[in-house]
Amino acid sequence: MKLTLRVWRQQNPETPGAMATYEVDNISADMSFLEMLDTLNEELTLAGDEPVAFDHDCREGICGACSLVINGDAHGPERTTTCQLHMRSFADGDTIDIEPWRASAFPVIKDLVVDRSSFDRIIQSGGYISAATGTAPDAHATPVPKPDADFAFEHAECIGCGACVAACPNGSAMLFTSAKVNHLNVLPQGAPERETRVLDMVAQMDEEGFGGCTLTGECATACPKGIPLPSIAAMNKEWLRATRKVRR
């Protein structure tokens, strides 16, 4: 198939960017979206132009590196990551708009590549269980009820791609933060740091300049891993509980 691509090009964080238009031909329906961009980049390179920069790595939908807003949707029209989106989701002759994640907490580095280190700092502020190597009791010392284990897993699936922030009209990171809070707070192992974790992570999230949550639900719709919207309510509950319970 033949496609028209309109791609955000931006040389570096300081220079303003703009949309550039490219034509690509001989695109197979079996190609992944990123393989289609590879094709464009091969042509650009041979023509002596700089290829379009975009983050990608595993191309299996698990590393969370890929991050494109395609026709206004984070990760494009299907509920999956960009790397798992295939060209069969598009038709011959389509015009496709490709933009980077937009949020002031995710500044653009180049073209479609953004800086998501704010997510790392949210985890650093409390998204862990303090269990230094060698201190662990036997794995079966603390049974975890299956529903709790499943709840933890469902939230631990987050790949940290940032689609939730990109889709949110407020650039809010509530879904990301709530996924980690819920994963760790439901487990008995996470209980000792339950209150400080949620308070510190929410404080860091605010500090990074993410917006507040207005529960538009755009984040959960865009999430390639299906982290559900009620995660946010569950974190709010944890947060309110923590403001009452935390030892001052």
């Binding site: 650039g171 300049g209 917006g211």
Partner: peptide, 11 residues
């Protein structure tokens, strides 16, 4: 919220 998302999507 507005500060957190200063740039709008073209599409």
């Amino acid at each position: 919220d507005i500060r957190a998302r200063p740039a709008k999507y073209v599409h």
